[in-house]
Design a protein around this nucleic acid. Structure first.
Lengths: 228, 228
DNA sequence: CTCGATCATATGGTATACCATGATACCATC
DNA sequence: GATGGTATCATGGTATACCATATGATCGAG
């Protein structure tokens, strides 16, 4: 891996081939994540064709993709929006704890000035939005925070997995983030993770990260049981 | 949840709707995993139609699914079999170490007589096959061993992730398992994990599991670098 | 001889048509 | 009135047709 190669690699055209499928995929995923399509709701192909204004081929391929992502289940009479019980959510929080703490630790090992600056910037942004109590934006910024961490740690496959898992518990995340307690403690915990990264302390960073997720999981559990 | 309910639940028809898509998906996945389709090879839709004897709709939906699974990349002129470099493989081994050691620990906490019996049975089978040096079967049995562990630990989502990751490094796994050293040390390490589970010792089980995977990763690294 | 332009073909993207199956509602018969 | 059968319709599965584009080859001009 010499300089020339990386220079050439950086020349790669990053044009996202904006195909109908890609657009429809994003729309559908957003619709499911945002709760516009409720869990358990049937996804009738022809209806979706009308709603999205595309043909069935597109819809079907999108559904296949979402099925593989775990956002859609195939019942016996067709695809439905996957629903999430506490057993599944608990597992997802556990997996996140494992993967995110590992990424955070590796990030703390490898973090340079540049990475730290980027993280600090995102955290400042989070503080501002948090004061205004805007859940969707907070979720966005939190995502960016972790995205930087996973990238700095070189854990791009783990990031892919975590992103996918997060979309499966997105409703829970929105609920936990909009809890008033959380809007105070959440940023504080992220700051703690950042502080450990800043002084390149992997163990402390991993520990803070695990606590952060454990707190979110506890909150999610109470909310989920209240919902029943 | 009383007895009658579970009895009634067990009556549920478990017929897997054997659709052309499902068959084609399995075939294609096997073909990629087994290396019949080499990494980087173009997957031409119409060619696959002829080879599998199905229509393009089926092939395309299957490709979407495999794309979401990470077995297929979409290049600018169409889908190709995803290839795996050491950077990616390393990450996958790390993720496996995290998820499998966690599952093994939870399994050690929860394991009852029945689970232990099932694990012992699989290990005996592994010993027999290992002596005959049959790599594909060894891989199969190893997979079953972990499947039992993840099921006993209640980590079914993590199992899904691990299965998918394993298919992405299947070639590496075949190579590492067919190494003579490994056919001796591999079963021994699984035995060690099992011993820890049998005496319900989560920490020892997790430790043995991490070592098992670290050994496989080292072997994979040397093989991968030799290949270049 | 080389460079370029144009045409042909291969390939993926999209839409639509047809078929098999399963669900539901209504009707007839016991 | 209840039960069983039948017909209709909704829905997913499959195949195919059409279009846009990119790639490669061939032919002509400089």
């Amino acid at each position: 891996m010499n300089k020339t190669v990386s220079d050439i690699a950086s020349l790669k055209i990053v044009s996202p081939p904006v195909t109908l499928r890609e657009i429809a995929l994003e729309r559908m995923r957003d619709a499911i994540i945002s709760g516009l399509f409720a869990p358990g709701q049937r996804l009738v192909e022809r209806t979706l064709c009308d709603q999205l204004g595309v043909s069935r081929s597109v819809i079907r391929e999108v559904i296949r993709h979402l099925q593989a992502e775990g956002l859609v289940d195939i019942a016996k009479q067709g695809p439905v929006v996957a629903s999430m019980d506490w057993h599944g959510a608990r597992q997802i929080y556990d997996i996140r704890a494992a993967l995110e703490s590992s990424a955070v630790a590796d990030c703390a090992r490898a973090a340079d000035i540049e990475t730290k600056d980027k993280l600090r910037l995102v955290l400042d942004e989070l503080d501002q939005n948090s004061r205004r109590n805007e859940p969707p934006t907070v979720l966005d910024v939190t995502t960016r925070f972790y995205e930087i961490i996973f990238a700095a740690a070189g854990h791009d496959i783990a990031w892919e997995i975590v992103s996918r898992l997060n979309s499966r518990i997105s409703r829970l995340r929105v609920m936990t983030l909009s809890t008033t307690n959380r809007s105070v403690s959440g940023p504080a915990q992220l700051r703690e993770i950042f502080a450990a990264i800043e002084r390149n302390d992997p163990d402390a960073a991993a520990k803070a990260c695990r606590e952060h997720i454990a707190a979110a999981a506890r909150l999610a559990e109470s909310l989920l049981q209240k919902e029943d």
